[in-house]
Amino acid sequence: MALLTRAITVEARTCAVVYRHGVRTGVLAAGRHRRPAGSTVVPVDLRERLLAVAPQDVPTADGASVRVTAAVRWSVTDPVAFVEVADDPEAVVYLATQVALREALAAVETDRLARRGSLPLDEVVAAVRTAAVAVGVSVQDVVLKDVLLPPEIRGAATALIVARQRGAALLEEARAETAALRSLANGARLLDAHPALAQLRLVQAVPPGTRLVLAVGTEAARLVEPGTASDDD
């Protein structure tokens, strides 16, 4: 007598592991299938997922303790292992990420942690992938979201940044002042070499209506304000 069957639909980007009497009978891809009566179907989502790792305090190589948070991009590539190997495969990936972060960052000094581009994340990704593949999971990436330094170190880093900016501002001010003094010195040498330029500058600087009186036989000059009499009047 043939076993009764009924239809089952496996959604897109998922698959289904089928068991009958406790024995795995196959893995169904997306689509519509016939399922024998008495069988059990375990759906598995194959889409990429994000696993957020809670903040954890990690000791550094120089004895400080920093708080880091991370996120893992992962997806299921072996649905059978994902269903059968571990009761909670996601917890396996989570723990592997925590341990890998602690081992990798424990060899890094605190000041290097402030420069995320120099963090040994390749080692973290490799370690997490090794643990994840056993439970049917492929890890695409491990992203370090936040690195929270101790308050004392954050204060020192802020003071260092302020000192650098203040020094840069003072240096720029000194450069501007030096350039101005150099320009004045060049102007003074030019006036000493050409006295006529000094008189020209004096003429240009007098207010409108002021008469300029030159002393006879000399290059001296004096100003006569409007409305006043000169010695020659």
Rank of each mutant, 00 (worst) to 15 (best):
P195S: 06
V99T: 13
E152K: 02
A196H: 15
R164L: 04
A52T: 15
R115K: 14
L51W: 01
L149K: 00
V124T: 01
V125Y: 01
V133P: 00
V143K: 08
G187V: 05
L214R: 14
R112Y: 02
R116W: 07
A198T: 13
V125Q: 03
A180P: 01
A159Y: 00
V80N: 06
D87P: 04
A215P: 06
P195Q: 09
R166P: 06
A52C: 09
Y19W: 11
T178F: 15
V162Y: 11
G155M: 15
A174D: 08
E173M: 09
A180M: 15
E109Y: 07
V68N: 03
V128G: 00
A156T: 05
D87T: 07
V72S: 00
S230G: 07
A127Q: 05
T69C: 08
A91G: 11
L160G: 03
T14F: 11
H194N: 15
S118E: 13
E152Q: 14
P55L: 10
F82T: 01
L4P: 03
A179N: 01
V93I: 06
L200H: 11
L202H: 13
A168C: 05
V143R: 05
V124L: 00
V224R: 10
T178A: 14
T97Y: 05
V72D: 15
R32C: 12
A54T: 01
A163S: 07
V128A: 08
L190Y: 12
A91P: 11
T60W: 00
R24A: 06
T9K: 11
V139E: 00
V139I: 08
R32N: 08
S39Y: 04
V53C: 04
A131H: 04
V139L: 01
G63T: 02
Q204W: 14
P120T: 09
